[in-house]
Amino acid sequence: MTGALLTAEGLDLHFGAIPALVDVAIDVAEGEVVAIVGESGSGKTTLLRVLSGQMAPDAGTVRWLGQDVHGMGEAARRRLMRTDWGFVHQNPRDGLRLNVSAGGNVGERLMAVGARHYGNIRAQALEWLAKVEVDATRIDDLPRTFSGGMQQRLQIARTLVTRPRLVFMDEPTGGLDVSVQARLLDLIRGLSRELGLSVLIVTHDIAAARLLADRILVMRRGRVVEQGLTDRVLDDPQHPYTQLLVSSVLAA
């Protein structure tokens, strides 16, 4: 696929006898939101970790702008992770520094890429807190005093402040109340459009995938069993597993 930022082919990974990934191929184009859905243990989080360079596959390649992600060396991969890439964890505690203020959390990535002007860093932190709807008066508060939804929004601000081109999201609405989920999904949707972000999102929430994703991949037991245009996969599912998945969703 031309214009793809991230391409992966032939990914295989086994944990002992358990297949985590079986011949998985995926690509993500500029500005595209791609959802990976499937039940727990289907391999979707493993796929995200392999694609983001955190875990090496047994076989297959992952390329970022043509560069082999797993062959590039840790320094280059880390640089990627704090410039062109972002990663939003399911549990905000994994993606935040809880003993550092909200402003410091947002500013860290800026400082990591060389920002050395306190006033500018603070101004950008304030700008991003506003974007994710965290009150400016909370800028010097520790994230441990924030609600789960606020923590997750703070994690998103911290990730997006350096304008990454591709953001990996692992169940970003996972542990949140339904009302908070909707707000967060809407925020992710708005920001990804406004910034032209590419997003690769792992979720078991079909409604979230429908709302956010241009394309969807359905995983089961390490395999991609069906993929395509989000509304086509969800409204006209072909694979028995996808039909089961879609029919299992409770209509609100």
Binding site: E74, A75, R78, R82, R97, V100, S101, G103, G104, G107, E108, R109, L110, M111, A112, V113, R116, Y118, I121, R122, I139, D140
Partner: peptide
Amino acid sequence: KRLHALADYGLMHVRLYEDIAR
């Protein structure tokens, strides 16, 4: 050790940032 190897020192500036903020 990894942070030194990669000269990844944003964290130290975060500490100084926190001082100025507080």
